[in-house]
Design a protein around this nucleic acid. Structure first.
Lengths: 338, 338
DNA sequence: GTGTTTAGAACGTGACGACTA
DNA sequence: TTAGTCGTCACGTTCTAAACA
């Protein structure tokens, strides 16, 4: 009957106070590391806390301080490697700053889905909301919406409200294409990401601009959806039309599918076709052949996002935007001079 | 000055009550969908809520109901595909059940790290804790620890306290090896995962038992750490010792590194060596060659975990363990009959 | 009576001013 | 004066019981 311990009662600050022979207010001072507590008193209180296995009620605390020590994260694009890494690193940074993270992963990027996911976070009284936005529409869903808390968006376009942190997709793409041009390639096809993806648009723009700077105009392939399957399908089409000398794929997964299609067609990489990807996922170094790609600093991005949150929460105006991080080209074996 | 709107005051239940011309208690009834509210009254209250953009304070609610509507998730093994998928699907299931998830990702699996991460969740007054445990030591860190809330662990071994949900690594491994045996292979090497990983141990055991049932004893390769690099390194060593007829790699990433090493050595897959992986990551279908592997139902696992939480939260004893899910072998082009 | 509504008492903290040695 | 301590109040909700149509 009572084997599972039916003492539901949990110790409160008053229980601690009684056991330590002080007032609850003194216990509160100890809990919050405030001064003006005699060391001996402090010790008695701390012992009582340990003895009763007392844990302060975050609910009561939040009620009176109006601070939940909680941040809401709306993350799209999971479980892909990039977004997953950002979430992971954001969580770590938040923990280091003493915040807990309530994460929610909308099933799709529809405005209504995003809003209801966010409303759940608001109901949980998060102190700020971080939006990891893959698609432009995700940003738009927040337009003209007064959340009541600061908003930080991780996105490749500067639209909508709130602070933005980002990785420089445009420069990353230019570096990738520049590498191919330096190798003497002139026919550089781009397999772009899906319409509506801000990363996809920026990489597409970088590809086009870098080619234009060399007086070239690139062939546009159909756009993919980031998946290896898309890369394979589009690669197969490319081969049918006549394979280009070089392909810049908008991410590593599509590059993988492309490699598959080229191999199936009996084309050698980099012998016949040079391939560059984007992201540097952990698998990329062991593709066949190992992939040249643009590495993104997801760790830094997660940290930037949390730093932006803290700025919003502490200061009112001091919003020096974080320095934008530029992807770094990792040259492996999938590219070669013509 | 006041451009950013210095009205920090947020509407309370009393403000709504006043505007609707009712008592705060009636508003509460409306909020909680309780009966005995006249339709006309309900409508007036709902209008007032909308007009004031009122959001109930979860803190105040949690204080009086002692329910935070929040679940803590301690996740190890991120950002790998498997754990990431489980987290993603658990989050969705939790949201469907009306719970928010506070996730924390301990940097390492040391007991102290795990405990402090968990203590943060306890301080947030989560109603239950879910432990996504890759390593055995993670489970051990919770041994003999009275959390004060239900514990559900997602793990491949049944040790420690709390309810456990799992995928059947052992049967998955047997299916993989069985496939190779049916193809006529006798020399089936296993590249196992790291010591301490429960998944690794179960897959190793499945490999050994399935071989033994055929009267065979397998060669043991050095153990890897799940990474493609480990697969490449161990693969290179295998080649030096004389390549086996078949290899069962404990996960797809190591299988990828192995494929890379075999290709470098000029060995054909599946011509010279057959390879089977584990997980079926999205990339696996486009490896060179496409990988035969054991697909895991991470979606179902996440759901199982949330179902277990709800069971713990609602009933006291009705703990029918969830049915264990068995991985499904996906046969592609990396295996062939001898 | 019965369906609706109301007033007051918790819940467990932190803020604040007052009290003591 | 001042370091240390204490008592009262407020935070915004749900619960309980009583009052009203």
């Amino acid at each position: 009957m009572s084997a599972n311990g039916d003492r539901n009662r949990v110790a409160t600050i008053f229980d601690v106070a009684r056991l330590a022979g002080v007032s609850h207010q003194t216990v509160s001072r100890v809990l919050n590391d405030l001064p003006n507590v005699r060391p001996a008193t402090r010790e008695r209180v701390e012992n009582a806390i340990k003895q009763l296995r007392y844990v302060p009620s975050q609910a009561a605390r939040a009620l009176v301080t109006r601070r939940s020590r909680t941040i809401g994260l709306v993350a799209t694009g999971l479980p892909d490697y990039g977004p997953s890494s950002v979430v992971l690193n954001f969580n770590e940074s938040a923990r280091d700053a003493g915040y807990a993270v309530i994460a929610t992963n909308p099933a799709d990027a529809a405005a209504s889905t995003l809003r209801s996911a966010t409303e759940m976070l608001i109901r949980q009284n998060v102190e700020a909301i971080v939006l990891l936005a893959a698609e432009r529409s995700a940003l738009d869903a927040f337009d003209g919406w007064e959340l009541g808390v600061p908003l930080v968006s991780i996105a490749s376009e500067s639209r909508g409200r709130g602070i933005r942190v980002t990785l420089d997709q445009y420069q990353g793409a230019r570096a990738a294409v520049s590498h191919l041009l330096e190798l003497g390639h002139r026919d550089v096809v781009h397999i772009a990401g899906p319409v509506g993806s801000m990363d996809a648009e920026e990489r597409l723009r970088g590809w086009r601009d870098q080619l234009a700077e060399g007086g070239l105009i690139g062939r546009e392939a159909p756009r993919g959806d980031w998946s290896p399957e898309a890369g394979f399908r589009i690669g197969t089409e490319l081969v049918r039309e006549g394979a280009p000398g070089a392909v810049f794929a908008a991410n590593d997964q599509m590059a993988l599918g492309l490699l598959h299609a080229l191999a199936d067609a009996g084309l050698a990489v980099p012998g016949d076709v040079s391939v560059v990807g984007f992201d540097d996922i952990p698998e990329a170094a062991h593709f066949s052949p190992p992939l040249t790609t643009a590495r993104q600093d997801f760790v830094g991005l997660g940290r930037d996002a949390m730093a932006a949150v803290l700025t919003q929460l502490q200061d009112e105006e001091a919003t020096a935007p974080p320095p934008t991080r530029v992807p770094q080209l990792i040259v492996r074996a999938s590219t070669r001079a013509v």
